[in-house]
């Protein structure tokens, strides 16, 4: 055994991503390196700090590999937000591959400088989980809603919801006690939070993706550079486009389980028709325009990013 790599993340080991993505990756790398790489996993922030610190921890070498969400540090990975814009994404596998290629084209030496991305993926389509049925955007008026990212907060505030900020683990309690009336989450996340037991209504957008959140698994660049070439090859063989697509696929499978739980609970699952979806999309275009403006203000070409992301999503969705 030559190298031990410390892998740090915020969820417990039994959760879907640690169990079906991170651990699978670690086992494969260990096996293909014939035991010369050992991956030591530290779930649930065991090495200290809070989730928003993970990006800095991998950059500074506090951990060698981390998994986190760019959304935990708003402003730091602004380009990743293009995939989080409402109604831009497709299925998680295609969108994850698009996210990988987009990052390779645009962010490796800028926003991801010092971090070597191993996998870049998104979760499944966001679903609105609410106390009362929500069909039209007007139904959101005054609804206290917890949204997961900066962009979704902008979007739902525009629709008239009262945005409430809180970490994901606080959501079940807040829902059950009426501190919030609704939350948006992909089906996969609702499983462990038992959301289906807490609300009666779920609004989903068939053939469309209300929003997704991006996530990344990354390695300290210096640690990677110091590996002998044959071990670099092992890491490379297990990382990148295909691995990102695989992770996206795992997220989609998780969605099926979460959806089934809501069905079994006898909940009201509202699948909007294309006509019903149309009024949700109009404000989404406004948010997109605003986001482009904001990126231009940062010296990034917002319009080009949106165009490229859309083209890449279309390309992988067609494959």
């Amino acid at each position: 055994q030559e190298v031990t790599l410390k892998m740090h993340y915020f969820l417990p080991p039994q959760a879907i991503v640690p169990k079906d993505v991170l651990d699978v990756w670690a086992k494969k790398v260990e096996a293909e390196s014939e035991g010369r790489i050992k991956i030591q996993q530290f779930p649930a922030m065991q090495l200290g700090g809070r989730p928003p610190e993970l990006a800095d921890q991998v950059l500074d070498g506090v951990a060698d590999i981390i998994w986190t969400l760019p959304g935990y540090t708003p402003g730091r990975f602004p380009s990743t937000e293009v995939f989080e814009l409402p109604f831009i994404a497709a299925g998680p596998e295609a969108t994850s591959k698009a996210f990988w290629e987009f990052t390779e084209n645009n962010m490796m030496d800028t926003e991801f400088a010092g971090i070597k991305p191993l996998g870049l993926w998104v979760h499944g389509p966001g679903v609105i989980h609410s106390e009362d049925p929500l069909v039209s955007p007007d139904d959101l008026n005054g609804v206290k809603l917890r949204a997961p990212s900066r962009v979704t907060n902008m979007y739902f505030s525009r629709l008239g919801a009262t945005a409430i900020g809180m970490p994901v683990p606080a959501v079940p309690e807040a829902l059950s006690k009426g501190v919030i009336d609704a939350t948006v989450l992909p089906w996969e996340v609702t499983t462990s939070l038992k959301i289906a037991e807490l609300v009666d209504n779920h609004t989903q957008f068939p053939d469309e993706t209300l929003y997704v959140a991006t996530m990344f698994m990354g390695m300290n660049q210096g640690v990677y550079d110091d590996l002998p070439d044959d071990l670099k090859a092992v890491i490379d063989a297990n990382s990148g486009l295909e691995f990102s697509g695989f992770a996206g696929e795992v997220m989609a499978k998780g969605d099926v389980i979460g959806h089934q739980m809501a069905v079994d609970a006898g909940n009201n699952i509202i699948s909007l028709t294309p006509e019903q979806i149309a009024p949700w999309k109009a404000p989404a275009a406004e948010i997109e325009a605003e986001w482009i403006e904001e990126m231009n203000g940062r010296g990034l070409d917002g319009a080009a990013m949106v165009e490229e992301a859309k083209a890449l999503i279309a390309k992988y969705d067609a494959m």
Partner: peptide, 14 residues
């Protein structure tokens, strides 16, 4: 001390 000093950048505040 590299790692421990890096940790300290954010850990007191957080």
């Amino acid at each position: 001390t590299t790692v421990v000093l890096s940790k300290l950048k954010l850990e007191t505040y957080s």
